[in-house]
């Protein structure tokens, strides 16, 4: 039994059958990649996992609880964090403040009106946030405006914001999209590092085969809305069906 169980999920957009009988089981403490050509339904699947889309049929269970029909903030509270294709950060705030917000959210759980304390006096949380920034090598930029960061830094900041909450499941939507090779490698190292240091499950949706084969322990190939194969990276590489559907086309 995996930590995330997707059963018989179907989703249609008008005439388009975006997800067809998707069954997926993600084991705890693994890095699981979902790959597939454009239009295979990867992003739709991800949006179903975070509750942004409700499938027409089927179920999505996280640790024995259904995620369907829950709001994004409730899904986060269950222990699922998400990194977006275009980093979603608080552009008007400083880097440190960006990381502090998830710290407050995690500690308080829900709405709390701390109107008479100062942010400065929350030494414990600031310490936590600063350590999270050290983990992604951004401690020296903690007083920068988040909007002024480079794309790679924004991505790392977003990861720090997710990781500081110690999620059980981290969903990454093309974490290296639009990055130069050097930055991509740094991101791979960062993710590998995180995985080594703590128990965490990651689901990565990725186009870049280099990233996928460097990180993933399991790979699911999605084609035209349904899973084609699920296997280890070694087996996927030589799989004839995958060559045909994806790698053959890409290379």
């Amino acid at each position: 039994m995996g930590i995330l169980e997707v059963k018989d999920v179907n989703k249609r957009f008008g005439g388009l059958h975006a997800l067809k009988d998707v069954n997926l089981s993600i084991k705890e403490d693994t890095i699981h990649a979902i790959i597939g050509p454009n239009g295979a339904g990867k992003s739709t699947l991800l949006n179903v996992l975070v509750g942004k889309l409700v499938p027409d049929t089927g179920s999505v269970m996280f640790d024995g609880q259904s995620v369907l029909g829950r709001k994004p903030h409730e899904i986060n509270q269950m222990g699922i964090s998400r990194v977006f294709q275009t980093p979603e950060i608080f552009g008007d705030l400083t880097v440190l403040e960006n990381v502090l917000i998830p710290c407050f959210a995690k500690r308080d759980g829900a709405f709390r009106m701390h109107a008479f304390e100062t942010v400065e006096s929350e030494a414990e949380l600031i310490d936590l946030a600063e350590r999270a920034l050290v983990d992604v090598n951004m401690a020296d930029k903690r007083h920068h405006h988040a909007a002024s960061l480079s794309r790679g830094d924004k991505r790392r900041l977003e990861m720090a914001m997710c990781l500081v909450q110690r999620p059980r499941l981290l969903l990454l939507d093309e974490p290296t999209a639009g990055m130069a090779r050097a930055n991509t490698n740094r991101t791979i190292d960062l993710l590998r590092d995180i995985k080594e240091r703590r128990e965490i499950t990651m689901v990565i949706i990725e186009h870049d085969m280099h990233v996928v084969f460097s990180l993933a322990q399991r790979i699911t190939v999605l084609a035209q809305g349904s899973p084609l194969v699920e296997d280890t990276p070694e087996n996927i590489k030589g799989h004839p069906k995958v060559q045909e559907a994806y790698l053959g086309e890409a290379h």
Partner: peptide, 28 residues
């Protein structure tokens, strides 16, 4: 002034900056 400097004020600025991220951070 106190509200501006408080965690509550920080959350209000976060609402202005990016509600999507705030939601995915676990806050309504």
């Amino acid at each position: 002034l106190r509200i501006f400097r408080s965690p509550f004020g920080l959350m209000l600025r976060a609402v202005k900056s990016n509600q999507t991220r705030l939601n995915y951070t676990g806050l309504n």
